[in-house]
Amino acid sequence: MDPVTNRPGRLLIHLALILFAVYSVVPFLWTALQSIKKLRDASSRTPKFLFTPTLENYEELWLRSTPDNPESLAFFLLLAFLLLICLLIFAQHIPLRRDLVYGAAILGLVVLLWLIPQLLDTASFYDYFINTLIVTTGTIVVSIGIGCLAGYGLARYAGMLGVIVLIAALAFRALPRLAYVLPYYWIGSALNLIDSHILVIITLVAVNQPFTIWMLRSFFMEIPKDLEESAMVDGAGRLVAFLRVIIPVMWPGIVATALFTLLLAYNEFLLVRILTQTNWTLPVAISRFTGGEDPRHLTLAAAASVSATIPIVIVILFFQKQLVKGLAAGAVKG
């Protein structure tokens, strides 16, 4: 539309948008504020805006006991973490083979995550965090792996069978989750897999597969056919042409799809709640803080909510473009 040019009009537009922004973020800001209050301040009769901030809620959430020298440990861990993140960001500018740099940074992160419970007396919330990382990573790898193959096949195959698969996938995506999650419980019990990561990962892959293949297919459709055909003329098989020629061009689409898979796996509550007993992921662990009699749950829930949000916000800061692109691309809501 043609832009509004008069001054009062523009002012009104910004005012409305700012109001909507406030409406969007008030719960986040309020929860963040509650999470750094002492319980006494957080549950006072009227909302408190002036208080002495404290990290005791986070400490109680993540640690079983206070370490002897918390400042230096926190400083060391934060420094190591920041260094690894910088390595990931600036990998392109380092004059080494890029996959080597990425590999080293990821290995460093894994070592760091393993090192933390050795240095600190971590509470169970840390275990839930690790569970979430394992489940999310596993789901992304398996889901994108088989999804790329299928998405490519569906983009290039013109037969009726392809349409049937696509429509069936759409139908299954829309079904109420419980219609297959309850049978998963039965399958898991029969195979003695309840509470295992593998069951959660493979079922998460399955429930997200319809969405994954639709989205990847739409990205593969944008790639011209001549690309792999010329490679195949040179004597490469279709699979080789796919891996060597198509996948490198597809990276942006793969990253966008992986991002959505990450959100879906990281956010999943119902399925994990039913298929695990103690090996919870963060959403299930956090839901334990609602209701209940323990008054400390008020501030612990706030600290847990902020803790679970920070990793996602960091990831999205890096990939906001892909997120918006994927959202706008169409049928993409989990």
Binding site: N267, S287, L298, A301, A302, S305, T309, I312, L323
Partner: peptide, 27 residues
Amino acid sequence: SIFLLRFIIVPIVGTIMFRQLFEPSGL
């Protein structure tokens, strides 16, 4: 970015944050 924040948040967490506004001493 501000508007999208609600979309990326874990739904359970988003609801807990929303609920914090209505807890005792909530805004």
